[in-house]
Design a protein around this nucleic acid. Structure first.
Lengths: 340, 340
DNA sequence: TAATTTTATGTTACCGGTAACCGAAAGCGC
DNA sequence: GCGCTTTCGGTTACCGGTAACATAAAATTA
């Protein structure tokens, strides 16, 4: 591998001069610079980041810890994040926790040994706080994305789960629905809690009773989750007065498994029952917008998250904690219908 | 930041002993090992990969160069790749070229300076060969994924575009279609060429004429591509005898923009026209399988690609070039119908 | 018990850069 | 022509590990 020493020898200067040319630091005579640049080109030299980071104490690398990039919501976050990072000269290491705190721990280890300059993370649960503290102990700033965790002090970038939830339920009520079930994600994830809060408060504000068995909890991610089937069946078996006329699915994946379950029961959406959810259902939305959703600006979340992170890394605006909460866009489409 | 020197001091041994404990190399007395491990735990030491890679000449990091992880096909590849890499102790740096060779060059530079041990790449076009050569010059193995490029010598992992294409067209012909249009990706991408070859040969084998204006080329990625509209309009303006009764879209994104274009023309699928495409249209397929597609095992492609790459990195099986071509699954669904 | 081998640990140098310091050459004022 | 300031470039040491070699202590053998 070509090093600055090879360049130095070829250009007949000291390695330090080569370093100076590369980093545009210090005073270098034009003729010397040209000699060195010629040698660099001829030998195809590329600086060794590892060596550089050893003295500079920064790697120009950021860690991205998400639950699953094959989930369109997260892949958009990842894309926005990567774009923002590259624009200002950072690399991105990616990882997928699958909502599993064991995996999360391992990835944090990986990020630590890679000496990333910062981490953008969608924590698996409140227990993640310990892991983030571990980063802190090593002076690695972390910015939370999509989810908060109790006790975390620092920046975060979120979609407004509460507000989106309120508007979705408001819309259903507006359409004449009174029996609205919520199929939520796990309550140890903040977005699930917020969506439930929005759901409950909106019902209350509209003087609608809350039925205990209207609320259930499943995994946020498994599209083919078997338990959705039984949850939906139970809801549909309630007597006519109590049977929900609308289901609020806490995210797009849950919505899809709900659709599947309803289909198996021979029910049609929206004729027999309305369905709303969080997050866009891509890419069908482009030619056949079907779901009434609260669409979150995922790519924007990723972009802002990285911007915040880099500001922390580079010690700008260290004075305050910033909490950006981006409102979702409510798109009323064909999965909801007005009650007669 | 805690180093082995801090550990050494605390445990009252030499740094080398600490290194040996960490790497399980050499002979260490049990009591010494325990002393050192205690110190490591107490100080929360994590090895510095950069320093390590400086002597070992490997970073345990792989580069993943794809066109766009927010495209479900590539995000699945990325997921499969990341999983396979982590399983054997490698990290993954990700990047998105957007089919842009400029960006590709920059990312190759990034990978070079990061001294990744290997690169898994979906090249933007045949011109990418120069970039891959640049990696070679630095002794960094590259494995191609999804696409081949002319003149490349090495491993690659592909979906069988030719075979998938043949089967899709075969299916359309079987359903009685005679006028089949192809809306292809750019011909400087191998998958587009292969899909066109499959299309042409299948027509020929069935003694169907090829109309020049049945074949058009657009971008592989922009869902909202304006030019799809005009292409579809032109096809639909052909006189009744020549007007295509089926469109073969070269990938899922093109299919979606075709659907949109057809919709704007007031045409229904499959009543007025049939549509087939490459790649699954996720995640709707789980509750409402609509498109007749040639589904590629994306995650599997990523996984195998990384396996091949790591074997190259670790110098196993260096003797031969391996070319894995995974067959797509043809799913006949509702976007195609039998001609009367 | 002395010689020899094995085990356990330390010392030194190096990986590829860069910060900090230093000195020669060139420019400048008088 | 002499002293002073800039400009330009070199030397040295260090970042945090590890390979290679060296050596002390313990175990084995003669």
């Amino acid at each position: 591998m070509v090093t600055i020493y090879d360049i130095a020898k070829k250009a007949n200067v000291s390695p330090m001069t080569v370093s100076r040319v590369i980093n545009n630091s210090g005073n270098i005579r034009l003729t010397t610079r040209e000699k060195v640049e010629k040698a660099i080109k001829e030998l195809g030299y590329v600086p060794n980041s590892a060596a550089r980071s050893l003295t500079s104490n920064q790697t120009k690398t950021l860690g991205l810890i998400l639950t699953d990039i094959s989930n369109p919501f997260f892949s958009k976050i990842a894309r926005g994040a990567e774009d923002a990072a590259v624009e200002v000269g950072y690399r991105v290491l990616m990882s997928n926790t699958d909502e599993d705190s064991e995996k999360e721990i391992n990835y944090i280890d990986m990020m630590l040994s890679a000496r990333v300059d910062g981490v953008l993370i969608a924590p698996t649960s409140d227990k993640s706080l310990d892991q983030i503290k571990r980063l802190r102990d090593h002076n690695i700033p972390a910015v939370l994305i999509d989810r908060t965790i109790e006790g975390f002090m620092g920046d975060y970038v979120l979609g407004d789960s509460y507000e989106g939830s309120r508007k979705l339920v408001e819309h259903l009520i507006d359409y004449g629905h009174r029996n609205i079930a919520l199929i939520n994600g796990p309550s140890n994830v903040s977005t699930a809690r917020e969506r439930q809060r929005g759901y409950l408060e909106t019902l209350k504000l509209n003087d609608l009773p809350v039925h205990e068995n209207y609320i259930s909890e499943i995994d946020f991610k498994s599209v083919q989750a078997g338990n959705t089937q039984s949850i939906v069946e139970q809801l549909m078996q309630l007597n006519e007065k109590k049977r929900p006329t609308a289901i609020f699915a806490a995210n797009n994946f849950i919505a899809i498994s709900v659709m599947k379950a309803l289909k198996e029961l021979g029910l049609h959406v929206p004729e027999d029952i309305s369905v709303v959810c969080f997050d866009e259902v891509e890419p069908v939305v482009y030619f056949d917008p079907f779901f009434t959703v609260a669409a979150q600006p995922a790519s924007e979340l990723g972009r802002i998250g990285i911007q915040f992170l880099i500001e922390r890394v580079e010690q700008k605006n260290v004075d305050q904690e910033r909490k950006i909460i981006l409102p979702p866009d409510i798109h009323i489409r064909k999965s909801t219908r007005r009650m007669k």
